[in-house]
């Protein structure tokens, strides 16, 4: 048991897993932050201008159908090797779930609250900022959680285009046929993803408790 543990630690150090994990999380955080900013903005914009909602969402849907490996390769000539294409691909995948949930959330706020807000003298802008957005937070969080899973996958794939991170360890393991390294890095990546998702799930649940009045539109 202890022997196994020492072996694992040796393998861990040999493949610089601590550093790779940090790289991995760094890429992941940057990609997710950008996705949230763009995704929520797109959601709000298509809410304000409902005429463009359908084309925008359709376009994002098309992007979503491109296989991730293909998307990475397409982005290579534009952004070269490294973290660039990886982060870009993550963002492209993540905009849709976040934007779609933001849009649905803003639209779906119970009309009785909107009515009251108008009646007590809130301007359309106040209603968006003080009522619609806060009350959509649980749903937006749900979208971010989906994006989190996408991002984790794409960032791992980034090993193929020399982005660093845990994908690199997997990539090396495959090329050198080091089964132990593949197993360790694979398991670790999986555990990391599960932990992050659990964390996001808890935040989402909290938001639901705090703001959770959202109901699907009939």
């Amino acid at each position: 048991m202890i022997e196994n543990f020492h072996e694992i630690m040796a393998l861990w150090d040999k493949h610089l897993l601590t550093m790779r994990t940090i790289e991995h999380l760094e890429m992941f955080s940057i990609a997710l932050t950008i996705s949230v900013i763009i995704g929520v903005s797109v959601g709000v914009i298509i809410y304000i201008r409902p005429g463009i909602a359908s084309p925008v969402l359709n376009f994002l849907n098309i992007l979503e159908t491109i296989p991730d490996l293909a998307l990475l390769v397409i982005l290579l000539p534009l952004l070269r090797l490294g973290t660039g294409p990886t982060i870009a691909a993550s963002v492209i995948y993540s905009i849709l779930p976040i934007a779609r949930n933001t849009y649905t959330g803003l639209k779906g706020v119970d009309s009785k609250y909107i009515y009251v807000a108008e009646a007590i003298g809130l301007s359309p802008r106040d209603i968006l900022l003080k009522v619609r957005i806060p009350m959509s937070l649980p749903l937006i969080a749900g979208g971010i959680r989906i994006a989190l899973v996408f991002t984790m996958g794409v960032v791992t794939l980034g090993g193929l285009v020399a982005a660093g991170g845990l994908g690199t360890v997997l990539q090396n393991g495959i090329q050198l046929y080091e089964k132990d390294a593949i197993l360790l890095a694979g398991l670790w990546t999986g555990i990391l993803a599960v932990i992050l998702d659990l964390g996001a799930g808890r935040i989402e649940k909290k938001l639901y408790k705090r703001y959770g009045t959202w109901q699907p539109q009939k």
């Binding site: 807000a117 108008e118 007590i120 806060p134 009350m135 703001y211």
Partner: peptide
């Protein structure tokens, strides 16, 4: 907006903002 801020409004289902 100005008009409504000059009058109070109370309705049956109250509509306090839950958040």
């Amino acid at each position: 907006v100005r008009l409504r801020r000059n009058m109070g409004y109370v309705i049956q289902n109250i509509g306090l903002f839950p958040h």
